[in-house]
Amino acid sequence: MPPGLGETPAAPAPADPAPGRSRIDPLAAFYLGLPFVALLAVPLYDRRDPTLFGFPFFYWYQLAWVPLTSGLIYLAARRRA
């Protein structure tokens, strides 16, 4: 170990770095979890049909989930208010 590193005094760990924020809102968690299910369950969308504007399903489905994810995060954020 290089000199100095061993005797480095640790900064005090915060007793509670985020007081009152450890509650998890189930509905917000649902909104945030949905994109994972939709995009990681690949067999769900690894298909050609139906096509949209010439895009096979595989492509337009994943592109559609970009604005959907943004909207879901917005809904989760609104739950804070």
């Binding site: 979890g33 970009v66 989760a76 954020a77």
Partner: peptide
């Protein structure tokens, strides 16, 4: 693309 999408719920959390 799915990488750059599910990235944001993670970032938000």
């Amino acid at each position: 693309l799915p990488y750059a999408t599910i990235l944001y719920p993670i970032a938000y959390a």
